[in-house]
Amino acid sequence: MNNRWCNYTELLTTVIMILIVKCDCNQVPNIDCNNLRLGQYICPHPDYEFIDLKTQQPKGCTKENKAKVTCLAATDLVCEETGNNTFKKDIPCKWTNGYSFETSLLLSIFLGMFGADRFYLGYPALGLLKLSTLGFLFVGQFFDVILIATQVVGPADGSHYVMPYYGAGITVIRSDNFTYKLPQDDW
């Protein structure tokens, strides 16, 4: 029995030694960095300028309101996409096509009775209607000032306004079947 125990011990020691020799313990495995959890990466990378100064949105913002930015994974993580600790990730943004919020609001206030605001935003039919009726006798101009100021009316191409970084950006919250308030249990 004692001899058998020694054989098992020698075999186990040999297997462990082979595994230690074959294993390079300093090698870090490549991982898919798109599956990292919050806290395992910083996005966007703090060393890169990613804001477009003309639009005040991330560079490369698409019509789908997403932009690819460079992110930094935690130390000692190697991403399989790049071979280092940086990777690309989609972040939300607001696609703009050059229409200024301030310009459209000022056009609506001062030249709205002639339809200049609607022509500027890409609504030529409404602009012509406002021009021929003197802004629906100034009532349409008043409503357009309110609709543009609250950002209900935007550019006709579906883009967002170009806003200053600390501008009057509004996020519209809509209610649907998934956002209604759930009933609470009575205590």
Rank of each mutant, 00 (worst) to 15 (best):
Q56H: 09
I42A: 09
N26V: 04
D52Y: 01
T86V: 08
I20T: 09
I31R: 13
I42E: 09
A116D: 02
F119A: 13
F50N: 13
E49M: 10
Y48R: 00
T103Q: 12
V78K: 13
C6E: 11
G98H: 05
N97E: 04
E64D: 15
E81D: 15
W5Q: 14
N30D: 07
G83Y: 10
K59T: 11
R118Y: 07
L19M: 12
R37E: 15
T14Q: 10
A73E: 01
L128D: 05
I51A: 07
I31V: 15
L111H: 02
N84M: 02
L107H: 08
S108T: 06
A116C: 09
F87R: 01
N7F: 14
I31P: 02
P124L: 00
W5C: 12
F110P: 04
A74C: 00
P46I: 07
Y8M: 11
A67K: 09
C25I: 12
E102R: 09
N65I: 05
K66M: 11
D24Q: 11
C33Q: 03
C43S: 15
P29R: 04
M113P: 10
K89N: 05
K94M: 12
L134T: 13
Q40R: 06
S108N: 12
T133G: 03
T133D: 06
N35H: 12
L111F: 11
C71T: 00
S108R: 03
Y8K: 03
I31T: 11
T55F: 10
W5G: 00
I42S: 12
E10R: 13
L53H: 01
L134A: 12
L77R: 06
L134F: 15
T82G: 07
M17K: 10
S132I: 15
V78W: 01
I91D: 00
F101V: 07
L111T: 03
C25Q: 04
N34L: 15
P92K: 11
Y48E: 14
N85W: 08
C23L: 11
E10H: 08
N30W: 05
F101P: 01
V78L: 10
N65L: 04
T133L: 03
Q57K: 02
P124R: 08
